[in-house]
């Protein structure tokens, strides 16, 4: 196949499909409830027991407390991703907290929190 034609097909195809999906409303991000955060955590980490769940007000992240330590589950497009908070750092961010995982395939998450939540999450993340 001539390279020009290949390029037109690939670029045009990707652009067209992207536009169609976006206009069809397929870019919406998953919203979590305490129940769905719990079931999503168990989907990712089926062996865990959950002590309690704290969902951020925007519904895009939840802190999971388990006997093995804290975990974070967050919206990832229409789905979710979950990680135990073992090898991680976090930093204050104007919109909440930024969590870094030291993992090339899962670099960081922005947890959006209001001022009230920020205090509570910081307390949960760093128990005395």
């Amino acid at each position: 196949m001539p390279l020009e034609l290949l390029l037109v097909l690939v670029v045009g195809g990707i652009a067209g499909i992207t536009l169609m999906m976006h206009l069809a409303g397929k870019s919406r991000v998953r919203t979590l409830t305490p129940e769905s955060a719990r079931s999503e955590w168990l989907r990712h980490v089926p062996d865990d027991d959950i002590i309690d769940v704290t969902v951020a007000h925007d519904g895009h992240s939840a802190l999971i407390r388990t006997p093995a330590g804290n975990g974070l589950v967050w919206s990832f497009g229409a789905d979710t991703v979950a990680r135990h908070l073992l090898d991680f750092d976090w930093m204050d961010h104007p919109d909440g907290l930024e969590v870094f995982f030291h993992e090339f395939g899962t670099p960081k998450v922005l947890v959006r929190l209001d001022e009230f939540e920020r205090q509570h999450w910081q307390h949960l993340l760093e128990p005395a």
């Binding site: 990707i14 499909i17 992207t18 999906m21 976006h22 397929k26 870019s27 497009g77």
Partner: peptide, 15 residues
């Protein structure tokens, strides 16, 4: 199910 960013990533991986 389709999701925009997921699909775009897949298509770019294909290219």
């Amino acid at each position: 199910r389709y999701e925009t960013r997921d699909s775009v990533t897949s298509l770019i991986m294909g290219a």
